[in-house]
Design a protein around this nucleic acid. Structure first.
Length: 171
DNA sequence: CCACGGTGGTAGA
DNA sequence: TCTACCACCGTGG
């Protein structure tokens, strides 16, 4: 595969009752998921047809996203491409995928998990840089005092996702 | 309740 | 390099 093809990214929409998400795929898997942007119109006109591999991944992504939005654990995920992250960020993102649906962790807890007990604030930064929210569940990380903490996609989304999973948040 | 210092990783200059 | 951020945390008023 040449360099151009290897770096090509395909973007495909996922329509849900919460709006239309946009999934991005690289040559090695799902590399991005964006929340619905109501103001932005869907790209019009012809799009380059997606390879069969991308379509297969997209079917998995779609099922998994709808599952999580309905508070159900997805059966399978597509391969995740964390190539855009630093080593530290990838460790944090991998740790996030280990948090079961309906459970939460603290930032400090996550810091210990990745072997950097003191890097609590940096963990927050890595969560904020998560390119695949919802499926890489950074919304399951709360502050140590039980408050909600932050969310790059907006706190309304964090609260909504936790609510669908049956998690009560203080505040 | 609030203030503050310690803290590690990142981005930008 | 140096510096200025931070989705934090614990302690102390």
């Amino acid at each position: 595969m040449n360099a151009v093809l290897a770096s090509e990214v395909f973007e495909l929409p996922i329509r849900t009752k919460d709006g239309t998400f946009i999934a991005s795929y690289s040559a090695t898997g799902l590399c991005g998921l964006r929340f619905p942007e109501p103001n932005k119109a869907a790209p019009s006109g012809e799009r380059k047809p997606s390879p069969a591999q991308v379509r297969a991944w997209h079917a998995q992504t779609t099922r998994a996203l709808l599952d999580v939005l309905n508070g159900r654990k997805p059966e399978t995920l597509p391969p995740l491409d964390f190539g855009c992250g630093t080593g530290f960020q990838r460790k944090v993102w991998n740790a996030l995928t280990e948090i079961p649906l309906g459970q939460t962790r603290g930032y400090a807890e996550l810091a210990r998990t990745v072997g950097r007990a003191g890097a609590v604030r940096a963990v927050g930064g890595a969560c904020g840089a998560n390119p695949i929210p919802v499926l890489v569940p950074c919304h399951r990380v709360l502050a140590a005092n039980g408050e909600i903490g932050g969310f790059s996609g907006g706190l309304d989304w964090k609260r909504r996702l936790l609510e669908r999973e049956g998690v009560a948040v203080r505040g």
